[in-house]
């Protein structure tokens, strides 16, 4: 019973998620264009690790795809038990803040839709 009432809400959230995905894609491309147009500078980049606790594999795939489209992050390696994800980040002045942003913003959003 509970599941039946949840389906429309979940569909609406999925639509919002697709809109969010396109917004992230546009923002990251604009940021990249700004970065390339500027004269040469050194980036503070690196590879950071985050713990994820998503159970379904489609949720993990959505997270990895979304992370590759967000400004300045690219997923590099996922451990075979799908518990730990390594990300190459381009703007890494504050690593703790970056990790917290991914945890709070993206993972919670995906958890509410798919699980």
């Amino acid at each position: 019973m509970k599941k039946l009432t949840n389906i429309p809400l979940r569909l609406i959230r999925l639509l919002f998620f697709i809109a969010f995905y396109f917004k992230e894609l546009v923002m990251s491309s604009v940021l990249l264009a700004w970065d390339i147009a500027r004269p040469r500078k050194t980036f503070t980049h690196g590879i950071v690790a985050i713990d994820i606790d998503l159970k379904k594999s489609i949720a993990v795939m959505a997270l990895v795809n979304l992370l590759s489209m967000t400004p300045g992050s690219l997923s590099v390696y996922l451990t075979p038990d799908r518990k730990r994800l390594y990300i190459h980040a381009m703007y890494l002045e504050y690593p703790d803040r970056f990790k917290k942003k991914i945890k709070n913003s993206f993972e919670n959003r995906i958890k509410r839709i798919f699980e």
Binding site: T42, F43, H45, G46, I47, Y77, Y86
Partner: peptide, 13 residues
């Protein structure tokens, strides 16, 4: 990675 890399947790872990 090129110059300016601050951390690489995949190698260090």
């Amino acid at each position: 990675m090129s110059k300016g890399a601050v951390m690489d947790e995949l190698t260090s872990e």
